[in-house]
Design a protein around this nucleic acid. Structure first.
Lengths: 146, 146
DNA sequence: AGTTATTAAGTTGTGCACAATTTAATTTTA
DNA sequence: TAAAATTAAATTGTGCACAACTTAATAACT
């Protein structure tokens, strides 16, 4: 393995680490009006689509565990965005569903993707390629970590 | 703006968010032996090169502010990896320098980049392209946030 | 020189993110 | 069916990450 490739990997990891924080910063601005964080927004995106999901299902889709989700969902419940209640079929499971107030944010959030794109102007082919590359990378990473 | 492009952006942001955590998880494993975190490893990479840097300089290179660095550097100091002392030229500035113990970790860390590459096997051209694309994206993002 | 502005760290408070463990419910199996 | 294993959340503790603010030192200006 050539040393330049090693350095490149290191650089890419640092850039992903940095890009993640810059993207989150951008979302923070866009989401300020909705009074939600980026991870909370991700939960809402799922619940706007599916209406209600268990903590486990949320975790599988977002790759987050209950140690992260439970306190976050509690904060969202306090803010009136979601409801949490034990499943009747399986008392171990907790069903999270979006409230009327949570659903109302959907409209306000409509403009976020386009605002986001305005701030990261990239050619469509470049976006597609980046998407593809990240998918491959994620597959490798996630295969390894299980 | 086509809606597919909007969705793609959203997906890419989520993938970067996810990739960052997967990469950090991988580093966590590799760095376990050294008893440092990924951000601490980044500080060490700089100090192995430059020997000593101010908090401000570290922040500029890592894009982190004193609210993140100060407590982190204190933890590293407690673990004997770095020393912190006020600059004599400018008492506002704090100079962070790597200790003998911190320098000793450099040897142990030599193998990390190659181990990392083993876990993310990608073609060199793909890596270069990803590197390029991330650089462009970061430039856009960072131009906007200042 | 004395006031004002700027700069560098540090502090405080909030919210992830995750390892490790605990608790309770459900499945599996002997 | 009773014991063992598995599963789903919750809890506990640590470490970033960052906004907002404070403190102290230096620089700039009148």
């Amino acid at each position: 393995m050539k040393s330049e490739t090693l350095k490149l990997e290191n650089q890419i990891c640092f850039k992903i680490y940095t890009a993640e924080r810059e993207i989150t910063k951008l979302y923070r601005e866009l989401l300020k009006e909705l009074n939600v964080t980026y991870p909370q927004y991700l939960v809402l995106l799922l619940l706007w689509e599916k209406h209600s999901l268990s903590v486990k299902e949320l975790g599988q889709r977002l790759f987050l565990d209950s140690g992260t989700l439970t306190p976050m969902l509690k904060r969202m419940e306090i803010n009136g965005l979601v409801e949490r209640k034990r499943s009747e079929q399986d008392e171990r499971s907790v069903i999270v569903s979006v409230t009327k107030k949570g659903n109302a944010l959907k409209e306000k959030a409509e403009c976020i993707p386009s605002q986001l794109v305005d701030n990261i102007p990239m050619k469509k082919e470049e976006l597609s390629l980046l998407n593809e590359t990240l998918s491959n990378m994620l597959e490798q990473l996630q295969n390894h970590s299980k």
